[in-house]
Design a binder for these strands. Structure first.
Lengths: 201, 201
DNA sequence: ACATTTGCTTAACGGTGTTAGATTATTTAC
DNA sequence: GTAAATAATCTAACACCGTTAAGCAAATGT
């Protein structure tokens, strides 16, 4: 019978319901308000059944992290495909990264450990690698002199990532500073152009 | 009698004992292991007496944050006073900042919200301002064309801070990456020199 | 119709931050 | 020196947390 499949589908539905509830709580009340019992309340179950869908709370967080990287990958890919030259791609991709951090702040916090509890896994996560691979590919194409060493790409990648992740972190952790949006965008684009220019000099 | 002062001194001693215990726990077991009861155990008291010295756990964290900024200020000041030209000062100060983050990782995590729970205060903290003021002063002296607008300083300040804080965050949250110490130092110094050069161009 | 599995709940363990009340020790007043 | 007042400290408790074990009740397989 198809009842097996229906049940499996239902199981999958409540699984995503759990994730949606968790995300909802975080978005409305912040990370420190997220608890297993609150998730259970929202899906109208009791806490223990969550452990039939996730091994523990960190399992939920890990799945949300994956979701986050999927959204980020989509955004960055779209930005890349909207431009022709590598320079334009680069800027658009990093701007997409920047925008993601502020339109999906909870995800960014979870993904990059900004103001959160630790999560030792998160390294060697395939979803994270797709993003870095895409960025790395375009970085490689920025170099005029070929072939480009893995070391050169890595260095430039971390240079880009550092300035942007740093700027984001500052704005997330210190939202009350005198940093206007224009100022941030100016710093962001100046830095990107500067690093890009320095690649072939 | 001087007994009043002796008692006050004793109170102050246990106050710093609480802070030392907290720091000790964090350094040996990490932030998530820090609990009021564990602090109380280490100073051989029970948990409630801590509330006679700090209003709550966040109060302890706030005081540790202040301590962190004091150490950072000392390091940065020493680095500044070891050099003559503004360029040398700048590099040495940022390297000192960098070194602080890794020789006092717990403090840096607490101060900049890297992988920690939130702390809404931390803005408008005088200890934080002394650091930013010192840095801002040297940045101002880097400009050849005077007078320098507050906006220009702010922008350059955030540019410096972003690349460095970003690079640090990456290394703290992703300690397993293929980022060697040499690579990091290279990125760091290249970025600093690049930003410094760009000031008068 | 009986046995078995499934879905879900209640109860509990050990932990957290925090507060109130009781208890003990110390100081003050006579 | 003793009694009252004050300070220092502890025990017990509250409400929450993540997590696990035991049990119940309904659906399923035979």
């Amino acid at each position: 019978m198809g009842s097996k499949e229906r049940i499996l589908r239902l199981k999958d539905e409540t699984r995503t319901k759990i994730l949606d509830a968790a995300l909802n709580i975080v978005q409305t009340e912040g990370w420190q308000a997220l608890s297993m019992r609150k998730i259970a309340d929202q899906i109208e179950y009791t806490a223990p059944i969550i452990y039939e869908y996730f091994s523990n709370k960190e399992g939920i967080l890990l799945e949300l992290t994956r979701r986050g990287y999927q959204i980020l990958a989509k955004d960055i890919r779209a930005a890349r495909d909207k431009h022709e030259t590598a320079e334009d791609k680069m800027e658009a991709m990093w701007v997409a990264y920047w925008n993601f951090a502020f339109s999906h702040t909870e995800f960014y916090q979870l993904m990059y450990g900004v103001d959160m509890v630790c999560c030792t896994v998160k390294n060697s996560l395939t979803e994270a690698e797709t993003v870095s691979n895409m960025l790395g590919d375009v970085i490689e194409s920025l170099f005029e002199k070929k072939p480009v060493s893995e070391d050169d790409i890595c260095r430039k990648y971390y240079t880009y990532w550092s300035i942007i992740h740093g700027l984001i972190s500052i704005n997330l952790v210190r939202p009350n500073g005198r940093t206007t949006d224009e100022l941030n965008q100016q710093i962001l684009k100046d830095a990107i152009k500067g690093i890009t220019l320095s690649i072939n000099s």
